[in-house]
Amino acid sequence: MRLSRRHLLALGGGLAALAGGAGAAGPPIEIAMRGSARGERVWFSPRGLAVVPGTTLRFVNRDPGNSHTSTAYHPALFDRQRRIPAAARPWDSGLLLPDQAFQITLTLPGVYDHYCQPHEMAAMVGRIVVGRPGDPGWEGPAPDSEDLMPEVLAAFPPVDAILAAGRVEAEGAA
């Protein structure tokens, strides 16, 4: 059997897509903003997530009783210490009402920490790991700093745990 040039190109394109890494060209991956029924607990689900560069994330407010944000730690946003790669663009979703969503595509390898503006003091934070240590341009997690409460710092899942599991949920998340 002899394959035409068109068939070879189609086959090669399909193999390249498979080798390119899951998630980069696929549908957005959801990070839900959640809260307990009485509102005493709030969290991102997952709290820690590993993705390949080029993945689009969709933050969706699944909490019927609260508004939430996803905001990158960055000096350009509320004069916060930078906790995303130096060359990455910071984001702020603005307040999302229940069932509203916000999307961002992360292309640079490294660790991205984000928080919910009205609920940071309740440790509503998350960590996204794009790529892996050793990738060109990789930037690891920001060092602990005095501008964050110890409870907030403790809520960030370790990078190695995120990479090992692919996703880490908040403790006690329902």
Rank of each mutant, 00 (worst) to 15 (best):
M1A: 15
M1C: 13
R6P: 08
L9N: 05
A10S: 14
L11D: 11
G13E: 12
G14I: 10
G14F: 07
L15Y: 09
A16P: 03
A16L: 15
A24Y: 03
A24Q: 13
A25V: 06
A25T: 09
I29H: 09
E30R: 11
E30F: 01
A32L: 13
R34E: 09
G35S: 15
S36E: 02
G39Q: 07
W43V: 06
W43Y: 10
R47S: 10
A50S: 15
A50T: 01
G54Y: 02
T55Q: 07
T56H: 07
L57R: 05
L57I: 10
L57S: 07
R58I: 06
R58N: 09
R62F: 03
T69W: 04
S70Q: 09
A72R: 02
A72V: 03
P75H: 13
F78H: 15
D79W: 12
D79I: 08
R83D: 00
A88N: 11
W91F: 15
W91H: 14
L95Q: 13
L96Q: 08
Q100G: 06
A101I: 00
F102D: 01
F102G: 00
Q103C: 11
G110N: 04
Y115G: 01
H119F: 15
H119E: 02
E120D: 08
E120L: 08
E120N: 04
E120W: 00
M121R: 14
A123N: 04
M124G: 00
M124D: 05
V125N: 00
V125A: 01
G126C: 06
I128E: 00
I128D: 00
V129K: 02
P133Q: 05
G137K: 06
G137Y: 08
G137N: 10
W138I: 03
E139F: 01
E139H: 04
P141G: 11
E146C: 00
E146N: 11
D147I: 11
L148Q: 11
E151V: 12
V152T: 11
A154E: 04
A154H: 08
P158W: 03
V159H: 03
V159L: 06
L163D: 12
A164Q: 14
R167D: 07
R167H: 14
G172F: 00
G172W: 00
A173E: 07
